[in-house]
Design a protein around this nucleic acid. Structure first.
Lengths: 238, 238
DNA sequence: CGGAACGTTGAAAGCTATCAACACCGGTGG
DNA sequence: CCACCGGTGTTGATAGCTTTCAACGTTCCG
């Protein structure tokens, strides 16, 4: 074995290798990436990083579901975003002031790949193309938040909840008999409320109103909806 | 005169030179920057770029005030952001899909410095440090939008309007006699409403309620407020 | 069994959207 | 000079929605 043996890219086995932020890392730096690369498994409810702590690197979700939440001074909190496999988190504080503005917590058992902060910095110096990748993730985040601001200004809470449930169903749903999809909700009622920006009581009533429309049923964490809600049904949501 | 004469950085005379995205441009590329650099003056109400059009470069606000707005399918619109001198706009579509998601319109007579898209791309290739600058602007935009989402979820419209007026006063206000500040509102009532995400009628009533608290007066576009609103006053806003 | 966390329901109060009407202002044209 | 007009901003009344507080039901676990 020679010391110059080709090192395999740590992300190659990942389903999201093609658009990995570390994709641009070239042979010279691959050893550093491979040596510092850390895979970590999180159980449900476990915290990846806490709000207000120093950034310790760049995190990439490999499996599961991570919730990014900011806690406010009054004790309340807002769920800013759900991060699915393939998404990168913690890059804002890595690129920015170095302090996490959000808490990252696993909503389901998850796996996260981490490149520590110092290694990330070095890789970034040697592989400028990585910055372009991070910028792309930034743009995606900006689009996401703009979309959310517009939704909040345009749609009723009921519509927003309907949209949210459809998105969740796309990620977690499984086809069932006769045109129905089913999923286990990965979020508690409080989390759903934090995501919409309403009180839990209101969320409960929104769910009731949604169920009355007939295209979705929600009992506890079990959600069932028509696979292809008719246009006139979704139009009646307003 | 020799052709290798040192070229001055086009942004050097700008008050925001130190944090300009083009600051990292080095001597070799300065000629290209200087040649393509375009200063443009906009009169009040003039459009810099329209939503849905192709990105034509990176824009830096030098003077005045630019409003970034997205128009929705139903004819309504949301004012996403105000861009003050020193801020960069259009970078999202430059880095992203190349289509402007927002409309940029001058709220006051303004000056904008533009580096056309192709020149920007070339400069970015030759000066990778520019990408870091753009990423910093991205992070700032992400922080701004997160802040806004949290505000919307946490504060009442009345508080949001109070915050907005204070921010505007910080930018546009002028000291007056006996601890008062005055400004000419750079936004119409509709724009203010779009910024908060409420209807114009509601904004009118919010203003009335704010005036009843006694620390601010708003007549037309003339706003007067106490220079240092007492703590208990701002606490009574809720 | 008891307790804690989670979720639902009810009633009252407060706020916003909507529709309609009106006031105000600047500019145009007779 | 004045009437008219469109754009802009305000006011009123009503209906619908959310918040808040309090109470109750459920589930899970020690």
């Amino acid at each position: 074995m020679q010391s110059a043996a080709k090192i395999d890219h740590p992300c190659r086995q990942c389903a999201f290798y093609a658009e990995s932020v570390w994709h641009p890392v070239e042979q010279d730096s691959l050893r550093s990436l491979a040596q510092n690369f850390v895979r970590r498994d999180l159980s449900e409810g476990e915290v990846l990083f806490e709000q207000g702590t120093d950034n310790r690197g760049v995190f990439c979700v490999s499996r599961g579901l991570i919730a990014l939440r900011t806690h406010h001074a009054d004790g309340n909190s807002t769920l800013l975003r759900l991060a699915y496999p393939g998404e990168v988190i913690g890059f804002r504080s890595f690129l920015g002031d170095g302090q996490h503005q959000t808490e990252a917590r696993a909503l389901t058992p998850s796996r996260v790949c981490t490149v520590p902060r110092s290694a990330s910095s070095h890789l970034l110096q040697d592989n400028p193309a990585i910055m372009k990748q991070l910028a792309t993730r930034c743009v995606r985040e900006i689009d996401r938040t703009h979309e959310r601001i517009c939704s909040a200004a345009t749609k009723t809470y009921k519509e927003q909840l309907a949209d949210l449930l459809m998105t969740l169903m796309d990620h977690h749903g499984e086809q069932q008999q006769k045109g129905q999809r089913h999923m286990r909700l990965p979020l508690s009622r409080s989390d759903l409320a934090d995501l919409l920006g309403v009180q839990p009581e209101t969320l409960s009533r929104l769910i009731k109103r949604l169920e009355k429309d007939g295209w979705v049923q929600i009992k506890g964490r079990h959600v069932t909806m028509l696979s292809h809600p008719l246009r006139d049904l979704s139009a009646s949501i307003g």
